[in-house]
Simulated assay, not measured.
Amino acid sequence: MAAAADEQLLLHLKLAFLALEPPACVLTLARKAGGGSVTPHVQNFILENCIGTNVGKSPNYAYVETILKKVIVEAELSSDIVIDEIYEELGQCMLSKTNNSSLDMASKIYKDISFLSPTYDNVSSNPVSLVAQLSCSTNMLEGDTGCCLWPSSLFLSEFILSFPELFSKKSCFELGSGVGLVGVCLNYIGASKVILTDGDVSTLANMKANMEMNSLYIKDSQLVIESNNKVECKYLSWEEASDKDLWGCQRDIVLGADIIYNPSCVPHLVRVLSMLLREDNEQRTSVKAATSKETSDEVSEKGATGGRIAYMATVIRNVDTFSCFAKAAADAKLSIVNITSTVAPSSFLPYMLSYDRSSVQLLEITLLS
C-alpha cells in the first residue's frame, strides 16, 4: 500500500511538470514524493520522467532551468545529496537556453493537462482518463487573456467529466472558448456536436491549432457537418452577433467559462445568451440530467424537464461586475441559479496545486417562458 502511495505521488509530480505548474508547486510535490525532502530517488525521477517530456515542440528552457535550480537549493538545504546528473542537466539546459534564446521569448508555451480518474485505486494500469494538449499564452498581462488557462475552464471541464450523461449526445455551444479545453472534454464524453467560439482572431487561431494538436479540428466545412465527435471553431463577436449569425447552429447546451469580466461586455453577453437559449422552430431534444441518483434531484427542474440550458463557470473577481450581469440577465428574463454547492464535480486534477477550485462558482442559466 505504501509503495502504491509513493507511485501516486510521483505520478502527481510528473503531471504537474507536464502541465507547467508553477515551480513552487512542482517543488512541493517533489518534496512530498521524497517524504519531506527532494531525495536522490526523486531527482532521478525528475530527470527520467519529467525533463524533456513536455508536449511542446521545443523545450521550455526557462521553466526547466528554474525547476532544476530549485531542486538543487532544496536538496542542499535539507542536506540531501544532489546527484551529478542534475548539475549536468542544468548546465546543458543553460547552454541550450543561450543557443536558443529566441525560443524562450516565444509568446506560447505548451501544456499537457491530464485528467486523472477520480475512482482509480492508487495507481492502476491507466489512471489518466484524458490528456488535453494545449498551446497557452505567456503574455496574459499584455492582453492575451484568451490564450490563457483559467480556473473556471478547469472547473467546467471537471463538471463535464463528472456528469457525462448530461452532455453526451447533446449539441454543445461554448462562448469565449479560449484555448479550447472545454471542447476537448465535450468531445471526449461523446457530445454529438461541439461548437467553440471566440471574438478574438488571435485566440481563435490558437484554439484551432489546439484542436488540430488534439486531432479534433477539421478544416473542411462539409466534413465538419458529416463528422461525429469533432469540434467546430467559429468567430463570434458578441457586439455584432445577430440571429442570422446563429441560424443553423445546433445547441442544446450553452457553456461559458470566465466570460463575466468586463461591465461593457455584459449587455452584449446577455443578449447573445438570450438568443442562444431561445427556442426556434427546429425540433430539439430535451436536455435530461441523467447523472447519478445522488445528484439527479439537485439539477434544476427546468434543466431536467427540457429546453435549452446554459452552464457558466465563473470567478467573481468584481462584485459590481457580477451584479451588473445579474441585473441585465433578470431584465432579459434569464433565470440564474447557483448550483456550485449542490452539483459538485469530482476532482480530476489533484496534482494542480495552483488550481483553486473553491474560487469558482457554477451557474445554471435558463430563459424564462
Rank of each mutant, 00 (worst) to 15 (best):
L236E: 06
I253G: 02
N122Y: 12
N126G: 02
N210Q: 07
V182G: 01
W247N: 11
N229F: 12
E21D: 14
T314A: 13
L20D: 01
S37H: 10
L11V: 07
S107Q: 11
N100E: 10
A2F: 07
A33E: 08
L273D: 01
A19D: 12
L130G: 02
S264H: 09
K293C: 06
I253S: 05
S221V: 14
P23Y: 04
E279V: 05
M94V: 15
Y235K: 05
D80M: 15
T321Y: 01
T197N: 10
K234H: 03
Q92R: 14
K169T: 11
V299T: 03
N44M: 04
Y63S: 00
L276V: 10
S168I: 05
G143R: 07
V319Q: 15
E240M: 13
Y351G: 02
I113K: 00
D198G: 05
I309H: 02
E212W: 00
E364L: 05
V123A: 01
E7C: 06
Y217G: 00
S358W: 00
G143H: 10
I339E: 06
V201R: 10
A328S: 15
V231Y: 01
G306Q: 10
V319M: 08
D104L: 07
C185Q: 04
T295R: 09
Y188I: 00
K69C: 12
F159K: 03
S354D: 08
K97Q: 15
I160H: 00
Y61D: 02
T342W: 01
R357I: 10
A132K: 04
E76V: 11
E364V: 04
H12G: 00
K302R: 13
A16Q: 02
L349P: 07
T119R: 10
V201A: 13
G248I: 07
E65A: 15
R317I: 08
V299A: 11
S171F: 01
L10V: 02
I51R: 05
I86D: 06
Y235C: 01
S341V: 01
D280W: 07
V319D: 12
S341N: 15
A75M: 06
N49D: 14
P267E: 05
S292M: 08
D356A: 13
P267R: 09
A62G: 02
L130R: 01
G183M: 09
G178H: 04
T145E: 05
E301H: 08
Y351E: 02
N229G: 06
D245M: 10
L90C: 06
M94A: 13
R251K: 14
L77D: 13
G146L: 04
D144T: 06
V315H: 08
A257N: 07
Y355D: 03
A106S: 14
S335C: 11
D258W: 09
D258V: 11
G143L: 04
I365N: 05
D252M: 06
N139K: 14
L27K: 03
L77G: 10
S221T: 13
D243H: 08
K57V: 09
G303W: 06
V224M: 09
Y311F: 15
A344I: 12
H268I: 01
S347L: 12
S286C: 10
S347V: 14
T28I: 03
C147Y: 00
F17Y: 15
T366V: 12
A326F: 08
K193G: 04
S125N: 12
K230Q: 13
A33P: 04
V315P: 01
L196E: 07
L196C: 15
K244D: 13
A205C: 04
A33G: 10
I259A: 06
